[in-house]
């Protein structure tokens, strides 16, 4: 179940080109990991899994807030949310 959710998020990350959807896919992957932690915590009847889930929630919120700030910057500079537009540097 968590594995499927994780895979869905990863596919979304790879396929989507819109930055908002990419951020959403990352959230899905993080939540899949959180779900796996809760299941594991339930298996061992320990609170640790849920504690980790709290940490993941807090971190995802922090990450997405910084991410949206950068999205605003992207929109201001490039007038688009397409990630292909913002690839001036090539490795």
């Amino acid at each position: 179940m968590a594995g499927v959710l994780f895979a869905l998020g990863l596919i979304g990350l790879l396929v989507r080109r819109n930055i908002i959807f990419i951020l959403l896919s990352i959230e899905i992957m993080l939540n899949a990991a959180g779900l796996a932690f809760i299941v594991a915590g339930a298996r061992w009847a320990q609170p640790d899994g849920q504690v980790m889930f709290m940490f993941i929630l807090a971190m995802a919120a922090a990450e997405v807030s910084v991410g949206l700030a950068l999205v605003l910057g992207l929109q201001r500079l490039y007038k688009t949310l397409d990630t292909d537009a913002a690839s001036e540097m090539k490795g």
Partner: peptide, 15 residues
């Protein structure tokens, strides 16, 4: 973000 979700998923599996 993607790499920390990989990391977390790996931790969850081991746990």
């Amino acid at each position: 973000g993607a790499s920390s979700s990989f990391l977390l998923f790996g931790m969850a599996l081991i746990y």
